[in-house]
Amino acid sequence: MSSSAAAVGKRLIKELASYRKDPNPCLVSLAPVSEDDLTHWIAVLKGVEGTPYEGGQWKIDVKIPTNYPHTAPTMRFLTPICHPNIHMKTGEICLDVLKNAWSPVLTISTTLTTIHQLLTSPEPNSPLNVDAAAVLRSGDRVGYDSLVRLWSVMYAGRPSNFGRE
């Protein structure tokens, strides 16, 4: 057990070093909560440009299991976000790479990239946020965008006059 824990730590250190050397443009920051505990990271995700998420920043809680990288890390949004596949209250993310499509090729950084891309390509047919999905499915793009914008302004620090100047 200790050897595997050491292996997990080693890989995480490598990932961290790799991220620091070559930061992920989707992220504002990515780091373990403390240097002692490498299995708990906090990431800050940038809103995708050209979308109502633009200008917002979301904290994501990343928990790494003991048999990483064989099992996917657990990720959830700490900052509330309005998205059909992300739970409004718990921040749970419905994404297949976080479940059965996980493979050790993925890193924490690349997984966060897939979450970043989930923001632009929501899948309203398997919703965790039923209301957002319903608005999107009804074809009310304007309403959906303004809903997302409102949440981004309220919680994610998007400037309220963003994009109007």
Binding site: D96, V97, A101, T113, E123
Partner: peptide
């Protein structure tokens, strides 16, 4: 739960 369409694109990109 799984989110195939949304993910197929991201996964390709992340794999790359």
């Amino acid at each position: 739960m799984s989110n195939l369409r949304a993910v197929s694109q991201p996964r390709r990109a992340s794999g790359e």
